[in-house]
Simulated scan of single mutants.
Amino acid sequence: MKNRTNLSVVVGERIRQFRTKQDLSQEELAFASEIHPAYIGKVERGEKCPTIETLGKIANGLKIPLSKLIDISADTEPSESDALYRICSAMNGLSKAQMNQIAHIVEEITALMQNPS
């Protein structure tokens, strides 16, 4: 049982690190994850061992892949793949036409950023 407690503490700390790097309060993360704020605090302190379903909700609230949240050997620094994941998540549920419009907007913005006048 001791390993479970240690793993809960490590995962809780990772959640806290991701949350604070995004300047989110526990309440904001709880709202985005559809979880009670008190439960987020208990998970971060390692007092609760969340189910995989709950970890999935927390990962969605943090806008990171679940695999990144539970990979305790990985760094918590944002990566290029995190940005792409956030973009894909934001477009979830849009039509192909809407996604193409967003792709066009992103292309225009990146062109402006690469060639500032």
Rank of each mutant, 00 (worst) to 15 (best):
K2A: 06
N3C: 11
N3Y: 12
T5C: 09
L7I: 07
L7T: 05
V9R: 09
V11Q: 10
V11I: 12
G12I: 02
R14T: 05
R16F: 04
R19E: 03
T20N: 11
Q22K: 05
Q22S: 07
D23P: 06
S25R: 04
Q26W: 07
Q26P: 09
E27R: 11
A30Y: 06
I35M: 02
I35Y: 00
I35N: 01
P37C: 13
P37K: 15
P37N: 14
I40M: 10
I40Q: 11
I40T: 09
V43G: 00
R45I: 05
G46N: 03
E47A: 10
P50S: 02
P50G: 00
I52S: 07
E53F: 11
T54N: 04
T54P: 02
K57G: 01
I58C: 07
A59P: 01
L62N: 00
L62D: 00
K63Q: 14
K63E: 13
L66S: 02
I70N: 13
I72Y: 06
S73H: 05
S73K: 09
S73Y: 06
D75C: 15
D75T: 14
T76H: 04
E77T: 15
S79C: 14
A83P: 13
L84D: 09
Y85M: 05
R86T: 10
R86W: 06
R86Q: 11
I87D: 03
I87G: 02
C88D: 15
S89L: 13
M91P: 00
M91E: 00
M91Y: 00
G93W: 04
S95W: 03
S95M: 03
K96Q: 14
K96S: 14
A97M: 12
A97V: 11
N100M: 04
I102H: 00
A103Y: 02
H104N: 07
I105V: 13
E107C: 12
I109L: 06
M113S: 03
Q114T: 06
N115V: 15
